[in-house]
C-alpha cells in the first residue's frame, strides 16, 4: 500500500499529464459535445466581446477600403435605380420607354482630390479621366445630391465645374409645386443656392424638395438639388425669390459619381440641327 502511494506521488506529474491529454482528446473526438457547444467557442459571450474589440481596431485601418467598396456599391445601385425609374417614366400608359432610353445613364465612381468652396467660381478635381471614360460635359453627383459638370479632362484626372459656380445653371423641379425653374449659386454661402423662374402665381412651400428636371441631358431626372429654405417675393418681379439649402455638403465631399448620358450626343445633335435651320 505504501509502495503504491509512493509510486503515485513520484509519478504524479506523469499521471496528471496523461489525464489532461485524455481530457483534450475526449474534447477533440467528441466535437459536438455539450462543453464545446456551450462554453469553449467564439460564441462565448466574453470571447465574442474580445473579438468584437479586436475587429473594431482592425476596422479603423480598413475604413479607406470600406468606403471605396461602399461607393462602388452605391454606383451599381444608382445605375440600377435610374434604369428602373427610366423604364417607367411618369407618362401615359401608351408610352413605353425602350430599353436603350432606360439604360442611357452610366455611372463611374471617382474620388475627390481637390475641392474649393470659397471662391466665386469653384472647381473640383477628381481622380478619373479619359482613361476611365470620363468626357467633358458629363454630370457629377454625390451620394446626397447634385455636384456639378465635367469641364476638362486629361488621361487620369478631370476638373468639374461645381454647382458653386456663377455661371452654372441646373434645370430643376419643385416636387410639390410641380414647377420647373433654374438653380444657380449666388456666390455667397456654399450651402445655399437660388431657384429662379418660378412664377409668383404658384404657391411654394418651405421644405419642398427640388430635384433635377427631365429637361436636361446632363443629369438623370430626380437627383436632389436641395430643399426650399425661404420664399421671398420681389415686389417688381413676376418671380419668386427662392433660396434652397443645398443637399450636397461640399465641405466633406469624398466620393462622387460621374454620370454619362449615352444618348446625349444624339439628342444634342438633333437640337443643333434645329438651331442651324433658324
Amino acid at each position: 500500500m505504501g509502495e503504491l502511494f509512493d509510486f503515485i506521488v513520484r509519478s504524479r506529474n506523469f499521471i496528471l499529464f496523461v489525464l489532461l491529454e485524455v481530457i483534450c482528446f475526449y474534447f477533440i473526438i467528441n466535437t459536438s459535445n455539450y462543453w464545446s457547444a456551450t462554453y469553449f467557442n467564439t460564441s462565448n459571450r466574453y470571447a465574442a466581446q474580445m473579438l468584437a474589440w479586436s475587429n473594431a481596431v482592425g476596422e479603423y485601418t480598413q475604413l479607406r477600403q470600406v468606403n471605396a467598396d461602399l461607393a462602388t456599391e452605391n454606383q451599381r445601385l444608382n445605375q440600377e435605380l435610374t434604369r428602373l425609374k427610366q423604364a417607367q417614366p411618369a407618362a401615359p400608359a401608351q408610352y413605353k420607354a425602350d430599353s436603350l432610353f432606360a439604360n442611357r445613364f452610366k455611372y463611374t465612381v471617382a474620388k475627390v482630390v481637390n475641392n474649393t468652396t470659397q471662391f466665386a467660381n469653384n472647381y473640383i478635381t477628381i481622380d478619373k479621366g479619359t482613361d476611365d471614360g470620363i468626357q467633358p460635359g458629363m454630370g457629377v453627383i454625390s451620394p446626397t445630391g447634385i455636384v456639378g459638370k465635367v469641364k476638362i479632362c486629361n488621361r487620369h484626372f478631370s476638373v468639374i465645374t461645381s454647382i458653386l459656380h456663377s455661371e452654372f445653371l441646373v434645370s430643376s423641379k419643385l416636387i410639390k409645386a410641380n414647377e420647373i425653374g433654374t438653380a444657380r449659386w449666388d456666390g455667397v454661402d456654399p450651402n445655399l443656392v437660388k431657384l429662379r423662374d418660378i412664377s409668383r402665381i404658384k404657391p411654394v412651400s418651405k421644405g419642398d424638395s427640388v430635384v433635377t428636371s427631365e429637361f436636361n441631358s446632363t443629369f438623370p431626372p430626380g437627383i436632389l438639388v436641395g430643399r426650399v429654405r425661404s420664399v421671398g417675393v420681389e415686389p417688381n418681379q413676376t418671380f419668386h425669390d427662392i433660396t434652397l439649402n443645398l443637399s450636397t455638403n461640399f465641405g466633406n465631399l469624398a466620393f462622387v459619381y460621374v454620370v454619362q448620358n449615352l444618348l446625349r450626343p444624339e439628342q444634342e445633335q438633333l437640337e443643333k440641327q434645329l438651331e442651324a435651320e433658324k
Binding site: 481530457i23 474534447f27 473579438l51
Partner: peptide, 22 residues
C-alpha cells in the same frame, strides 16, 4: 492546459491547442 483551452476557444478547436500545449 488552461492556456490551450483559452486559445482553443478563440479558434473553435476545443482540445487541439490544449493537447499540443500540455
Amino acid at each position: 492546459f488552461v492556456t490551450g483551452l483559452i486559445v482553443d476557444t478563440f479558434y473553435n478547436t476545443l482540445g487541439m491547442h490544449a493537447a499540443a500545449t500540455v
